[in-house]
Amino acid sequence: MKDQPDLKLLSTFLAVVEHGSMAAAAAALGYVPSAVSQHVAALERDLGVELLVRRPGSRLILTSAGRALARAAADLFEATARFRDAADGIARREVAELRVGAYPSAVSHLFPGVLSALRPRERGVRVRLIIVETHAGLPRVRSGDLDLLIAYRYLPEDPPVASAELALTSLGHEPLVLVAGPQPGGRPLALEDCLDREWTSGLAHSPDRRLLHRWAGELGIAPEVTLETEDLHSMLAMIRAGLAVGWIPAGLIDASLTEGERGGGGVQRVVLPPGSAPMRREVLAVSRPGTRPPIADELVALLTRALRDVGA
């Protein structure tokens, strides 16, 4: 027996099984009947067993070996068809699973609505969403562990940057809002009212801390940061408790709590001096060059629109 079956002989044999005779199989395949008979005989020689009981003038009868081979051959051709479909899909950059990394506030405030609009499962695609900060996600994109990373950048000179390993698409800019705890009587809070208060921001040399220092330097002020954390939810909790002032991404703040004082432990915007430059961070989609499938492009487009709504 040969190590690999002759697919042409197997295909002819299955046609004989399906149509019930050499002549009918020959008509279906466009062969002469003698060619079909030769194919079946050659297959029997390769396997060393009889596959068909040939009786002149009657329908062909499959032997037990013939029935077993017919089932195995049908499974083989079905698997081959599935493989070809999968290979064609891969060539068209279709995927069964898209591994997406994103920073925590994007997952909680952008992705629920975006994934509901995309409905990947209805299209046979599973989006595996992984919460990861930008600095930790970039190596995973390079290694191929992540297909797409939704990242942020506070300063243009900071990572991520485009390279031979990383392709970047800007989704837009997310506004940062200077907020404090609610004031008694709904009194507006101006920046000068916050200069003697404690502030919260990132660690000493983190991008958001450096952005804060750059902004403060342009205004000639020196806010005192006493709560250093990379956890935005911790920052917001301290601000809501009236213990600190800080810049928070607009998407993290409930829309009903961003304009003036709102009751129930909310926050209020700090009124900035006229002409103050807006604070914001850029949001980017990061992938390996040339590897982004169509559904990833659709996801990026939806995230771009969702981010635009946050900034509106």
Rank of each mutant, 00 (worst) to 15 (best):
L9W: 09
S11N: 04
T12L: 13
F13I: 06
V16Q: 05
V16G: 02
E18L: 12
H19F: 10
H19C: 08
G20W: 09
A25F: 06
G30L: 00
G30P: 06
Y31A: 02
S37Y: 14
E44D: 07
E44V: 07
R45L: 15
L51M: 07
L51Y: 00
R54W: 08
R67W: 00
A68P: 05
L69I: 04
L69P: 07
A73N: 12
A74S: 15
R82H: 13
R82K: 11
G89N: 04
R92C: 14
R93L: 06
A96C: 12
L98V: 04
P104A: 15
A106I: 13
S108F: 02
P112H: 08
L115P: 06
S116I: 11
A117N: 09
L118H: 08
P120S: 04
R123G: 05
R123H: 08
G124Y: 15
V125C: 04
R126A: 14
I130G: 02
V132W: 06
H135N: 15
A136E: 15
G137H: 06
P139E: 00
G144I: 11
L148Y: 09
L149G: 02
E157I: 09
P160C: 10
V161F: 09
S163G: 12
L168E: 04
L168C: 09
G172P: 02
P175K: 08
L178S: 03
A180K: 08
G181P: 09
L189R: 14
E192I: 02
D193G: 02
C194I: 05
R197N: 10
E198F: 07
L219V: 00
A222E: 13
A222F: 13
A222H: 14
E224S: 12
V225M: 03
V225I: 03
M235S: 08
M235T: 10
L236A: 13
R240K: 14
A241M: 15
A241P: 05
P249E: 04
G251Q: 11
I253H: 05
D254A: 05
G260R: 00
G263K: 10
G265N: 12
V271N: 02
P274L: 01
S276I: 12
A277G: 11
R280S: 10
R281S: 14
E282W: 06
V283E: 03
V286Q: 02
T291Q: 09
E298Q: 01
A301Y: 06
L307I: 09
R308I: 12
G311L: 11
A312V: 10
